[in-house]
């Protein structure tokens, strides 16, 4: 067993884990943060996307021990109390989900996209390219892409 200390959604968390424990298992089973989903478990679908020091990563393809001393943000850390984050609000507004299974990962990836283009411009092609790491089996993506573009606009990016 190894002791791991990770700051999750701003709160320091420590636990004894096996080295083979995945970060997503640590989040879901040790911390009961079940908003982060496991879809494919093969680093393709992106449902497990969280932020590691502000950058989107797939938590099913990372060991908890690799996150030692780092900052992790999950979907539970995105809203402020009952106030939805502009990205979450845009997903609701644009019907960017149907069953909702991929949505936590989509939102975490969308936050990464908007962060990478902060202060600049963004277009539909860029959003589609940068959502390549997330799979949705319901929506056909149109609502998701619209949601990311609306959120980008509401967060001050120029939308081409």
């Amino acid at each position: 067993m190894a002791k791991v200390s990770i700051t999750v959604n701003g709160k320091p968390q420590s636990a004894e884990v096996e080295p083979r424990t995945l970060l997503v298992e640590f989040l879901r089973y040790k911390l009961n943060l079940t908003g982060t989903h496991v879809g494919c478990d093969t680093s393709q679908c992106g449902a497990c996307t969280v932020h590691l020091d502000g950058k989107p990563v797939k938590s099913c393809t990372m060991l908890a021990v690799q996150a030692e001393g780092r900052n992790v943000t999950t979907i539970e850390g995105v809203a402020t109390g009952d106030q939805l984050h502009p990205v979450q609000a845009a997903f609701r507004e644009c019907h960017g989900l149907q069953c909702g299974f991929c949505t936590p990962g989509m939102v975490m990836s969308a936050l990464g996209i908007i962060e990478r283009h902060k202060g600049g411009a963004i277009d539909e092609k860029t959003v589609r390219h940068e959502l390549e790491g997330n799979i949705c089996r319901c929506t056909g993506y149109q609502g998701i892409v619209n949601a990311v573009l609306l959120a980008a606009k509401n967060m001050g990016l120029k939308v081409a």
């Binding site: 680093s43 992106g46 996307t49 590691l52 950058k55 989107p56 990563v57 797939k58 393809t61 990372m62 990836s109 990464g112 996209i113 990478r116 940068e130 390549e132 790491g133 997330n134």
Partner: peptide
């Protein structure tokens, strides 16, 4: 290479 999440790791 891969996708944004993969490129971050």
């Amino acid at each position: 290479i891969g996708d944004p999440q993969v490129r971050n790791r």
